[in-house]
Structures are given as structure tokens and as C-alpha cells.
């Protein structure tokens, strides 16, 4: 299955990067710069848009700023300059109390999984629903079905530490999508798994994209990038370039 390559645009000098129909833009960056504290600027004049339903790779060497860019997207940090929009909202204008609602519309998968080790696979996957205030009786069956969908039904009550890297990453993906986020971000999702598992995880991301989730995968694994004809954003020294391979 081919990923949806259309709907992605990037401009390093965009004056108005946001289209008329903002509802179709999941995330928009306009001349965004970012630095940690008083350190050097990690991201420089980054402008791009992620449109609903798109599948995009973000590549670049270590230290290029991929993780920092993702942190801005999942609102772990604020931009030092420029405009960042999430679902049509300028995040700089949002109050802190508004952020959790937006974060719930974004699923995040990390290379190092970030599971809660004292919780079972089921409890980890159910975490976003639980913090959203849903009752266990309302989500238990859906969560169990999702765990089954990622092929871990027999590990429902296992602790993450007892699972392989690939299995833990599938738990992380299930957790990221359990509340049906509009955007799924993955930071080096195949970094701790073997090539065969990497291909299987990629198929999982493609399947989620086919179901309507916007997907952004940050990776330096070019094998993974070559496996799909999806657009690629490349970061080098904090600057973003774009290559739409479907064009």
C-alpha cells in the first residue's frame, strides 16, 4: 500500500504558510527557530505544513534537530521564534491549561519506548484513555482488541521489561493510537529493533495512515525511507529541506 504523499508543502521563505482551509492542516510551522535556554539555535527558520492524512518522513543526521522539531510538534517545548500552529491554533497564544487537550490529539512513539515499567501491557496501552478520565469498563474491550491488533494478545498482562524491543515498540504504538489521535509522531521507532521487525512496524504505521491518521516518522534509517514513496523532510544543521518523491 502506498502512503499518501499528497497534501504536503514546504517553503523556507513562506510568508503565509497556512492555507485557507486550516482544518486540513494538522501542524504548520512558519519561520520557526528554537534554542534551549541561551544555547545556540537548534532549529533555524523552519517552515512546513503537515496536512491531514499525509505520511511523511523526517530524516537527518544525529544532532540535526529532528528530536527538537518533534518536541515542538508534540508541545514538549515552545519555539523561540516564529509561528507554530496545531490544528489551527497558534500554540504561543494558548494557555497552559489548553495544551493537554491538544496533546491528546497527537500520539507519540519513541525509540526508547517510554513505557511505565510497573504497569502491564494492557495498562500502558490504556494510559491515554485513563488520564482522559474514561472508566475502565468503557475502554477495556477496545484496549484488549488493540493489543490483539498489534499481535500481543498473549502479553496482555506482561510487564514491558519482559518483552522484546519489537514487542515493546508495538505496545508503544498501540498506546500512541489508542485514543485515535489525528497525528502520529514516531521518533526513530525502528532504532531498537531488527530489520524484519522494522519492516513490520512500518507496515503498522502505513495501516494506521490508511485508516486516516496523519503520520510523521523521524528516522535516519534510509532503508525505511526507501521502502515507501512518501515525502521526506530533511534536517541538516537545523535547516529543513523538502523532497516530494511522488512528484
Amino acid at each position: 500500500m502506498a502512503a499518501k504523499a499528497a497534501g504536503f508543502r514546504v517553503s523556507e521563505t513562506a510568508v503565509n504558510p497556512f492555507p485557507q482551509s486550516e482544518s486540513e492542516v494538522i501542524v504548520g510551522f512558519d519561520a520557526v527557530g528554537m534554542r534551549y535556554g541561551r544555547g545556540p539555535e537548534i532549529l533555524k527558520d523552519v517552515s512546513f505544513q503537515l496536512e491531514r492524512g499525509s505520511f511523511t518522513f523526517l530524516t537527518g543526521p544525529s544532532g540535526a534537530g529532528k528530536t527538537s522539531l518533534l518536541r515542538l510538534i508534540y508541545m514538549a517545548n515552545k519555539a523561540s521564534r516564529g509561528v507554530v500552529q496545531h490544528f489551527g491554533h497558534d500554540t504561543a497564544a494558548l494557555q497552559r491549561k489548553d495544551l493537554p487537550d491538544l496533546r491528546r490529539r497527537i500520539g507519540v512513539v519513541f525509540q526508547e519506548f517510554r513505557m511505565l515499567e510497573h504497569l502491564s501491557v494492557f495498562e500502558n496501552v490504556a494510559l491515554p484513555l485513563r488520564v482522559a478520565g474514561q472508566k475502565r469498563a468503557n475502554y477495556a474491550e477496545d484496549v484488549a482488541e488493540l493489543v490483539n491488533w498489534v499481535g500481543l494478545a498473549h502479553h496482555m498482562e506482561s510487564r514491558p521489561a519482559t518483552l522484546s524491543g519489537g514487542e515493546q515498540q508495538r505496545v508503544a504504538i498501540a498506546r500512541a493510537v489508542v485514543n485515535q489521535p489525528e497525528l502520529l509522531i514516531a521518533d526513530e521507532p525502528t532504532g531498537n529493533v531488527d530489520p524484519d521487525m522494522a519492516r513490520r512496524l512500518l507496515r503498522l504505521f502505513v495501516e494506521l495512515n490508511r485508516l486516516g491518521t496523519t503520520v510523521l516518522i523521524a528516522t535516519h534509517d534510509l532503508t525505511l525511507v526507501r521502502a515507501l514513496e512518501a515525502p521526506v523532510m530533511s534536517l541538516a544543521d537545523g535547516r529543513l529541506t523538502y523532497r516530494d518523491r511522488a512528484a
Binding site: L116, L119, S120, F122, A126, L127, E141, A144, M156, E157
Partner: peptide, 15 residues
């Protein structure tokens, strides 16, 4: 369809 585990939700902060 797989059956969800029985029991209540676990503590989010570990012991």
C-alpha cells in the same frame, strides 16, 4: 476478541 484482564486499574505511581 481477546478478553481484557480482570481487576481494577493499577497505581500510576510505582511503589
Amino acid at each position: 476478541p481477546p478478553a481484557p484482564p480482570s481487576g481494577g486499574p493499577a497505581r500510576l505511581l510505582p511503589p
